[in-house]
Write a protein that binds this DNA or RNA. Structure first.
Length: 491
RNA sequence: CGGGAAGUAGCGUAGGCCGGUAGCGCACCUGGUUUGGGACCAGGGGGUCGCAGGUUCGAAUCCUGUCUUCCCGACCA
């Protein structure tokens, strides 16, 4: 069949592409590096977005929206920031087209050149801090806790569906505080929100940590991150939360009067997660038969497939299924009844397995007689025959069990793939033969970090929060080290 | 951006070297039989062969350019 999926063992990259394309999440588009997010994929993103949005609001944040375009000069106000993003910015130079005088089509009107070019935002710190200057005068205006849901553009050389696209959807929180302590607290609080969301909703275990100076966000004092592990043993940065110090306040001259009526620069944070999370979800859980989606964010949690001979049986099944659906919906469960007659049950089973629907119910005349239904769970592929009495309660607890099982399985895999290396030979062997996170001593210098990356393609994913101090020697240079850090090859 | 591969109907592909009416499977439409793990029979529709030039009486096929995708690099909060 045309919908066969490449196995993970054959070609992991192709497996991932197959799942995204054949699972109906996204498609390639006519624009290089940009994808079309299809309804099923967007529904998944919406469920992520809605839960995150609620969590942001519960922690005191409000939403706003800032422009897509940023004056070129803004970007260069913060030196490290422009350094980090300059190489991947789309630039608007003109605002008008005209008919080509020499033939068909249209050309850029050379008379419509902009006085100052506009950058399509790769991130919004600059446009937002230029605005915050007008919003903040007093300590009474702080903290300012704002989030925006937006699209951004980063002109990457090599793109991959969801994991790295030229345009992507994300949220970016931008907060302003009176003290460094409060800003750091905010940075850590939002990292916790991300970790909670990832583990409790996506069922993807993450390691919270801090980036090294070399991996830090352009313009940040400290970058916190959550790191997840994919089934091929590569790490994926799933979210970041930055303590920006006073860098952007100084760049955009944002000061406030404190209680003593002294002017001080404002302290800042920014934090974001993107549609990349969809890629993380796919790669963390799915198998060679297709997607496996966690119940809490699956667009469909339950699909019901009728099995019938003739209209009479169909009518009897419809009647029963309608009462089941009403009960499930009343319990807040997202359920679909697929009574489309174009495809037979076997086709539907395969299709919904590919789409990763957590629970499938199949019901036929035989079941009606016995007052039962066949329930199949996607995560373990087990099938159970369940009494129709109390089936709603059963499904509710089953969805909870699937959610928990998916997390447990991913966590067991992740935990098995955090390995200590105590020598260079061991480090290289682990990278090539086992993958995953490697906990090893590092002498703390950028030079060593880069040297290791050049030799092995492994990077320091993070220094875990609450890392225990432990004297040792750097695996590459043998110089003294005070703690282990986590290395991995990463997306 | 460098190296490699590819683009022919919605999807997967044959044909290309050696130029001469574009074929097959799945999907789709109509009718019928079916329905407990990717149904079957009969009939039918859909293509300027990625796009733009060029060579030629004639181009899917040869030449040039260009766009897009995939794999490996470089790049990447």
């Amino acid at each position: 069949m045309s919908k066969e999926i490449t196995s993970r063992a054959t070609d992991y990259s192709q497996w991932y592409n197959d799942l995204v394309l054949k699972g109906g999440l996204a498609d390639y588009s006519a624009v290089k590096g940009c994808m079309v997010i299809k309804p099923y994929g967007f529904a998944l993103w919406e469920n992520m977005r809605d839960n995150l949005d609620r969590m942001f609001k519960e922690t005191g944040h409000v939403n706003a929206y800032f422009p897509l375009f940023i004056p070129k000069s803004f970007l260069s106000r913060e030196a490290a920031h422009v350094e980090g993003f300059a190489k991947e910015c789309a630039v608007i130079t003109h605002y008008r087209l005209k008919n080509d005088p020499n033939g068909q089509g249209v050309i850029v009107d050379p008379e419509a050149k902009l006085e100052e070019e506009l950058i399509v935002r790769p991130t919004s710190e600059t446009i937002i801090w230029s605005t915050y200057k007008d919003w903040i005068q007093s300590y009474r205006d702080l903290p300012l806790l704002i989030n925006q849901w937006a699209n951004v553009v980063r002109w990457e050389m090599r793109t991959r569906l969801f994991l790295r696209t030229t345009e992507f959807l994300w949220q970016e929180g931008h907060t302003a505080h009176a003290t460094a302590e409060e800003a750091v607290e905010e940075t850590e609080k939002m990292l916790d929100v991300y970790a909670t969301f990832s583990e409790e909703y996506m069922a993807v275990p993450v390691i919270k940590g801090v980036k090294t100076a070399n991996e830090r966000f352009a313009g940040a004092v400290d970058t916190y991150c959550i790191e997840a592990l994919m089934q091929d043993g590569k790490a994926l940065q799933a979210g970041t939360s930055h303590f920006l110090g006073q860098n952007f306040a100084k760049a955009f001259d944002v000061k406030f009067s404190n209680k003593q009526n002294q002017l001080e620069y404002v302290w800042a944070t920014s934090w974001g997660v993107s549609t990349r999370l969809v890629g993380a979800l796919v790669m963390a859980h799915s198998d060679d038969e297709g997607l496996i989606l966690p119940p809490k964010i699956a667009p469909m949690q339950v699909v019901i497939v009728p099995i019938f001979k003739g209209d009479d049986q169909k009518a009897a099944i419809d009647a029963k299924v309608n009462t089941i659906i009403q009960e499930l919906k009343a319990a807040g469960i997202r359920v679909k009844y697929d009574d489309n007659d174009n495809n037979r049950p076997g086709w539907k089973f395969a299709e919904y397995e590919m789409k990763g629907v957590p629970v499938r119910m199949a019901i036929g005349a035989r079941d009606l007689e016995k007052n039962v239904v066949e329930v199949a769970r996607r995560d373990t592929k087990e099938k159970m025959v369940i009494s129709l009495d109390g089936v709603t309660q059963y499904i509710i607890s089953l969805l909870g069990e699937i959610q928990q099982n998916m997390f447990n399985k991913a966590k067991a895999y992740r935990d098995e793939h955090i390995t200590e290396a105590n020598s260079w030979a061991e480090f290289e062997q682990l990278l090539d033969e086992k993958g995953g996170f490697i906990s090893a001593h590092w002498d703390g210098t950028v030079e060593t970090e880069i040297a290791i990356k050049e030799k092995t393609k492994a990077t320091i994913r993070c220094i875990p929060l609450n890392n225990k101090k432990e004297a040792g020697t750097c695996i590459l240079t043998g110089k003294p080290s005070e703690q282990r850090v986590l290395f991995a090859r990463a997306y």
